[in-house]
Each structure stands twice: as C-alpha cells, then as structure tokens.
Amino acid sequence: MKTAVLICPGRGSYTKAELGSLSRFPDRDLLARFDARRRAEGQETLSDLDSTAIYSVARHTRGDNASALIYACSLGDAIALRGVKLVAVTGNSMGWYSALACAGALSPEAGFEVANTMGRLMQEHLIGGQLIYPFMGPDWTAAPARKAELLALTYKINARPNHVLALSIDLGGLLVLAGNEAGLAAFEAAVPPVEGRFPMRLGNHAAFHTTLQAPIAALGRAALPETLFDRPQLPLIDGRGHVWWPGAATRTSLRGYTLGHQVTETYDFTAAIRSAAREFAPDLFIIAGPGSTMGGAVAQSLILANWQGLASKADFQARQTANPIVISMGLPEQRALLKN
C-alpha cells in the first residue's frame, strides 16, 4: 500500500466549478448536523449553498460561508479516502482547521465549530485584505533573488507611515501579501503586471496571518474552548513546517498555536510541504477537495525543496506522466487513481 500525506486547501478553493461537491459527502448524517448547527446560528446551510444553481462571488466567497464549505469538502474527502496509508496531514491557511480534524486533533463537529467560527469572525470584521503575486517564472525554476527582492519591497512599504504590508502565505511560487489598503495599493503600483492577472486582489479576504488579525485571534480564543481539542492520531504539519507528533502534542499547545500564531503570523505552506516530503518521504501527496487550485503550489513547493531531483515544471510534468506523485481529489480522473 502506498503512503501519502493529505493536504487540505484553504480559502479560494471553492469556486463556480465546485458547486455540487457535497453531493459526494460520504456521511449524510454528519452533513445534516453541520446544516443544523448553521441553521441554529442563522446561517445558510451548506446543503443550500452547495446545491444552488448559480454561483455567487458575493455569497460563496464570504468567510462565513466559504470556510465551512471548504472544511466540509475536505473532511468528506478524507473520510472517503481508501487504498493508501496516511502518514501525515497538513493544510494551507484555513486548511489547518481541516487538517486538525482529518488528523483526529478535532472531532468532525469540533472542527466544524472552529472553521465556522473563525470564518464568521473574519467576515464580520474583515480587517485589511490580500493579494497574490508570483516570483517564479513560467518554467517554475527557483528564483530566490526575485523572491528576496519582492520581500524587501514589502518590508520597505510596511515601514512607511500608515502603511501595513506583510507576507501572509508563502505559497510555492506565489507570495500572498496582506495589509491595509495603503500597503496593498503601494505594492500594486510598484510591481509590473504578470500574466495579465497579477497582482491579483482576493475578494472577501482579510489580512490573514498578519498582526492585523490579533483582535480576531482574541475573539477566537474567547469563543473556542480548549476542550474542543485533543491529541492528533496522525502527525500534523503546521504553517511553520513544524511537526506535531501524536505522542507529544497537547491540546493546550495545539489550541495556542491554532488561535494564536496561525492567525497572526506568516503561514509558510512551502515549508509545510518541504517538511512533509523530507520527514515522511510519501509515495503520494494527496490534495483533498474542493477544487484543484492547490496542485501548482504543491508542485512548486516540491521543486523548491528539490524533492527527488525535481527542478522545473518540465521535470514535474514528466514525473506526473510517468508516475503521479500529486493527486487532487477534486479532479475526477485523479480521484479515480485512489480507488482500490
């Protein structure tokens, strides 16, 4: 049996193409409990959001809707996963909440409570914003000098009066930056357009993983007790690349990281994938749904780690053709590769 690391996606992974994803959720009773919890909070149910005929950016990308939808899709794929031996779990940004549940550090219901609560708090306050900008070229080769140049620009802008800008997520070949309007606008004005779409603002996204979110972290700690958390049953890799081992992690420390550092400091997804590769050397990197937007970032992170000699997009594509190592469960043809 092949070994695998499970990767849970974050915000932005539930798009128009993902409508109907919950039709494959393997535990209808559990989904009904999620719906009942949201109904009790005066929120739209996940079933209603997922089954609507028309995708709405204003409706589906809201933090209080998107976070719960993404959590449920990722958890459902984890429950349905067969034919591999999971050796570790990680995630990107809010995917950390999904990863906690998939690794057993949160029950399915507790994980839903964390994801739904944090998504609601982010949406209610919506402090700052985010944008994406690439530092890798189209060949996906490492470009450390370009990355350093962009980060230096970020620090310089952040030092200006009334400007806030910081690295939110280190995402493979992409930098996700977050800050206030002045900081974001200054960066947009300072860099050349790339591929006709970058720098790209992310709608309904707050300044995740920056000190601007300290009030949200405090509200999260007030709303989410330590009793929700438990020791993980599988190793967990967080947004620093740190491994939480089942026999060593405690509910106190996990909650402290989840509702502290994870909210207010940079989320280094690249480091998480590097740790997953080097610490566990899995046969497969499996990306849970919804969608397939994380495939490029995972591949780029493996290239940056020089995993098994991968050094470019061409290297990765050749490896995928010969013997796939990254599988997105949101793609039916790749999901089928995991069936017994």
Score class of each variant (00 low, 15 high):
316 F>P: 03
187 F>P: 15
54 I>D: 14
291 G>W: 06
60 H>D: 06
199 P>E: 08
308 Q>M: 12
331 L>C: 05
332 P>S: 02
289 G>R: 07
223 A>I: 06
241 G>W: 00
125 H>A: 12
6 L>P: 04
118 M>V: 15
144 P>D: 09
190 A>K: 00
57 V>W: 03
89 V>Q: 11
152 A>L: 06
268 D>T: 01
232 P>G: 15
337 L>S: 11
37 R>V: 06
68 A>E: 10
333 E>Q: 15
2 K>E: 13
233 Q>E: 15
104 G>P: 14
30 L>W: 14
119 G>L: 08
178 A>I: 02
261 H>D: 10
280 F>Y: 01
134 P>T: 08
81 L>D: 12
202 L>S: 02
225 P>E: 11
272 A>T: 00
97 Y>T: 05
201 R>I: 03
26 P>R: 06
60 H>M: 13
23 S>R: 14
125 H>M: 13
325 I>C: 05
175 L>V: 03
332 P>F: 04
333 E>R: 14
306 N>W: 02
68 A>G: 05
128 G>K: 09
219 L>H: 03
105 A>P: 07
106 L>E: 13
315 D>Q: 04
207 A>Q: 15
124 E>G: 07
71 Y>A: 10
37 R>N: 11
126 L>A: 09
246 P>V: 00
254 L>E: 12
269 F>N: 03
234 L>V: 07
119 G>V: 07
31 L>S: 09
248 A>L: 13
71 Y>P: 08
299 A>Q: 08
205 H>K: 08
32 A>G: 10
189 A>L: 00
70 I>Q: 12
233 Q>K: 15
214 A>V: 06
255 R>Q: 13
254 L>Y: 12
73 C>F: 04
283 D>S: 04
65 N>Y: 13
99 A>T: 02
297 A>S: 09
335 R>L: 06
270 T>A: 03
182 A>E: 14
17 A>K: 13
60 H>F: 05
172 G>M: 07
45 T>K: 02
205 H>Q: 13
279 E>P: 01
31 L>I: 12
90 T>N: 07
82 R>I: 01
333 E>K: 15
324 P>E: 07
52 T>Y: 01
149 E>W: 03
67 S>Y: 09
59 R>I: 00
285 F>A: 02
42 G>T: 14
125 H>F: 05
294 M>N: 04
132 I>K: 14
215 P>V: 09
